[in-house]
Simulated scan of single mutants.
Amino acid sequence: MGASGWDYYMPYQEDRYLALVTLRTLVFEAGEFLWAVSGKMAVDDPGRPRTEDELWADETVRLKGTHSILDMYRVLADDETPNYGYLPYPYETFEEYMALVKEHGNPEYGIIVPVGEAEAYETAGDTKLTRDHVEAIVPLAKFPGIGRLAVLHDERDTPAELYFWGFSGD
């Protein structure tokens, strides 16, 4: 099937991990994830799991993921360096990617990497990102199984939303 892209907007809150936990709960309860056992979106499958423990108890799900934010479990701190497991930008094909993984180790899957000010400025030309910048920052989610997070500001430069995005799954 391949990895699937996902993105979500959440009202801004300072505690980004709490925002992730809240978002995961909302997505799970709404069934907005792939239930790998049936190959259907969970919302369309009456036999889907009713708890996250049931979801992750299934080996198929652990291998294929949910193609959603449910595949993410941790938000890195601003000063934390992500463990991509390889040098982050020098590949263009899957074969090159796999060679780098073999040489340098596996990435730390399931993490959310916040967009820092320098990266925001380099990518979008501004340190106070807004919804107008989303198209410019989407390519920052380069690695499967590693999500991104940006604080989006309103017209008064006040934090208004958290934007989570990435791609995950088999």
Rank of each mutant, 00 (worst) to 15 (best):
E95T: 14
Y8T: 02
F28L: 11
M98S: 10
Y121H: 10
R24E: 06
L20D: 03
A120T: 05
F28N: 07
L70Q: 09
V138L: 14
F164Y: 10
W35T: 02
E52C: 08
S4K: 07
A99F: 06
R131S: 09
L149E: 02
L55Q: 07
G105A: 07
E117I: 14
D78A: 14
M10S: 10
Y17P: 00
V21K: 14
N106G: 04
K64L: 15
D132G: 15
T22C: 08
S68G: 06
G47V: 04
I111Q: 03
T123M: 01
A124S: 04
T51D: 13
L55P: 05
P107W: 01
G169I: 09
Y97N: 05
T51S: 15
L55W: 04
A77C: 06
L34P: 02
D71R: 04
V151Y: 08
D58N: 15
V134Q: 03
V21C: 08
K142R: 09
A36Y: 06
L55D: 06
D53P: 05
V27N: 10
E117L: 13
R74V: 08
V37W: 09
P46L: 12
H104M: 07
I69C: 04
G116L: 01
Y89E: 07
E161C: 07
R16E: 11
E155H: 14
H153T: 12
L34A: 06
P49G: 12
L18F: 10
E32Q: 14
E155P: 05
G39W: 09
L23M: 14
R16V: 02
P159R: 10
F94L: 11
P46R: 09
G47Q: 15
D170P: 13
T158A: 15
F33D: 06
E80K: 08
R148E: 01
I137W: 02
P88S: 00
L152N: 11
A141L: 00
H153I: 14
G65W: 04
N106Y: 11
G166M: 05
D44L: 14
V21E: 15
V101F: 06
E59D: 14
M1C: 03
